[in-house]
Design a binder for these strands. Structure first.
Lengths: 212, 212
DNA sequence: GTCTATATCCAGATAGAC
DNA sequence: GTCTATCTGGATATAGAC
């Protein structure tokens, strides 16, 4: 995560200042409630520069969106490079997303909370963006390897990540008392047993579901 | 679901016409991309009437939001009245939400897809709205009754409904080829085995997770 | 209570000096 | 490339006839 890294107060380059200011404002107030003037003011840059660099408000949002998707993609790169099995990769991705939500809140908020099609009209849906496609690929691999019960790819991915994403959103909304990592084991446990290949249990559960 | 029922082309009352027009436009284009004039035009009403009835654009959104939350609440009423065990109530709620997504798409889209705090600034978060609180209550009851494995209420609710909500969003985004009810059994199966009380399997899974 | 015509405001975008 | 001052469109909201 090179560029938007927020550990230093506010790095040099002008377009980075603009993007970080925009990110914070967009997350705090929502894209449509933020004016270019506000971004300009917070970034300590003139309006002209913003239009020179990004061509306008939508340009800022698009640059930000692409940049953050790339960062997410790199996160996945890192996981894939260090973890062997697809199932463990899923687990590790969730772990890192949880950690990231605490340390880089607004990045995660922008990626997971906003409805990008409302301001990036012609853009592809976020679910079709590269990192999300890769995640589905990992889930499919796990099914092929027999680590996960075989089912529809969308169902499997939703089952594996749906609970975790929900928890991220709850944390972003300030509804969880503890930091996300504190819930990690419990979330993984639930997600995992929901998708794991385990025929005996599978059958047993099936009858129990029918019972109710 | 009395008022906004869309089976008839467009019922009489003026404020209903306004709300249905607004619902469709808000879902199609997003709240901020819809002007009062567009609502006026589609609802075949004059601007004056809109301001008389709702006081403005935000008033429309607020009325709509409250109305649809009430409908959701009634859906839960229906489930609670006809189904006995809390666990089965969860299952039935998901079943009805899936069906509803197909038959009343925009109602579900407005409730599940939008970020209401971006236009209803002072409103409570949707997760804290009555129907969502009740759903968490049902999950907690299920845990108390021993139908679900005992864990944090947020984690349990996310695990139970996270996958289903994700599937609803995917369907709304046009990414699922089949109608949602076709995925119902698979989704329930995954959600259920993720939360079910089943110590033997619980232990077995735990060791498998650690393995990866 | 419903409508049309109008006022007001403000955001996005530009022009042109430096 | 950066800035300030300015323009313009369009949105919300209102005034006042009917």
């Amino acid at each position: 995560m090179p560029y938007l890294k927020r550990d230093a107060p506010c790095p040099e380059p002008l377009d980075c200042r603009i993007l970080t200011a925009a990110l914070d404002l967009f997350v705090e107030n929502g894209y449509h409630n933020v004016s270019v003037h506000e971004v300009q003011k917070r970034a300590q840059v003139s309006i002209g520069s913003i239009y020179n660099h990004f061509g306008g408000k939508e340009g800022i949002a698009r640059a930000l969106y692409e940049h953050l998707l790339n960062e997410l993609d790199e996160l996945i790169d890192g996981v894939v490079a260090t973890v062997e099995s697809p199932a463990a990769q899923c687990r590790e991705i969730i772990r890192q997303l949880f950690a990231h939500t605490e340390t880089h809140r607004n990045i995660i908020a922008f990626l997971f909370h906003a409805k990008h099609t409302e301001f990036l009209r012609d853009d592809t849906l976020i679910c079709e963006a590269r990192p999300f496609v890769r995640i589905r690929g990992i889930v499919v691999d796990a099914m092929k390897k027999g680590e996960l019960r075989k089912t529809d790819a969308w169902v499997a991915t939703s089952a594996m990540f749906g609970g975790a994403v929900r928890m991220i959103q709850l944390r972003l909304d300030g509804l969880l008392a503890q930091p996300l990592p504190d819930y990690f084991e419990a979330v993984i446990e639930s997600a995992w047993s929901g998708v794991a290949e385990n025929t005996e249990h599978h059958m047993k559960t099936k009858s129990r579901v029918a019972k109710y």
